[in-house]
Amino acid sequence: MSKLTQQDLDMWVDGTEGVFSLDEAMKELNLEREDRRVLRVYLSRLVKRGILENVGNRMGHYRLIQTEWEPINIFGKSKFHDLVFPVPIQKYVRLGRGGMCLVAGEKDAGKTGFLLNIAMRNAARLKQLGQTIRYFETGETGPDLMRERLLEMNPTLTSLPFELLRLDGEPEDTVRRYPNDITIIDYIEAPEEAWRIKGSLTRLSKGLAGGEGGALIALQKPKGRDDAYGGQGVKDKAQIYLALESKNGSGWWKCRIVTAKSRVQTMIDPVGKEWKYHIKALGTEFADMDPNDWVDQDRPARVEF
């Protein structure tokens, strides 16, 4: 019996963009040869329901039919979220309305500490501007470890300046409910079914569209590469994409800007810029940074925009 269900396929299809083939679906869904017939039947059902269409004269090629379009108001009030990061990324990049910042890190690279720092450093100021930071935790850290980390950051802390919530369902539901606030998701994990990550990010992007808010999302990535689990398409969803990784086993860690779609200084290209640091205080302190010790010095932008 095939392990593929119609529900799984529907979810995967909802996260696709452009044309995909039967073979690509087989690969991303990690299906076996004996699942091919079932997959073809399920895809045919989606074609009959008007969700997919066959593309041209190519056998086994499909496209998700778009039925909704989000209006874009370019004359609305410009709203870049001037977020403060635990490393001085804000000097070079910024997050615009409806944008996502993806923080892809190796295991123990400090992803939770990185996101907690963002929440603690920005919540009070954003609250004065009418925005709330909501930090969704998937359960890996738990309330006791979270309390320890937050008290390391502020030993006198008696209440949180942001909302801390447990994420039990689908990540995209968070921004659909709160499209005008700042959502932090710690984290999306599904390396054994990596296609789910790209689908979730596609739906998160759609949920943010048209709102005044933004999202910061932690992802797992393998050692030695920038791309998080989910592949190249994951990186393409981000206005800002950061990679956290160890520095050649030296005890140092580094944060690198991989994608920067909105630059603070248009004449400086921030892509490739790195900061090195030690992780201390239960992963919440990014220490020993030398503000003049850039791994990659400021360089002119290749393209001015």
Rank of each mutant, 00 (worst) to 15 (best):
S200K: 08
C255W: 06
P143Y: 12
R263V: 12
R121C: 05
E106S: 13
I185W: 09
A104I: 07
E68L: 12
K107T: 14
V93M: 06
D14R: 14
Y92C: 02
G207A: 10
E24Q: 15
R37L: 07
T156C: 03
W69V: 13
F114A: 04
L43W: 03
D181K: 04
A281G: 00
M1D: 08
L208A: 03
L151N: 02
G98Q: 07
Y277V: 00
P222I: 01
T266W: 04
Q131A: 14
L167E: 08
K221F: 00
A215N: 04
S262V: 08
G272K: 02
L95G: 02
S246D: 13
R256N: 07
R176N: 11
L22T: 14
G110W: 01
G199C: 04
D82T: 13
V175D: 02
Q131W: 05
D236M: 10
L145V: 05
M11K: 12
L46E: 09
K276R: 14
L22C: 05
G230E: 06
A260H: 06
W252A: 09
P161Q: 11
I188K: 06
N154C: 15
P71S: 11
K254A: 11
P300K: 09
G15K: 03
R166D: 14
R134C: 02
D298G: 06
K273S: 07
V84T: 15
V264L: 04
G283P: 01
D290V: 11
W253R: 07
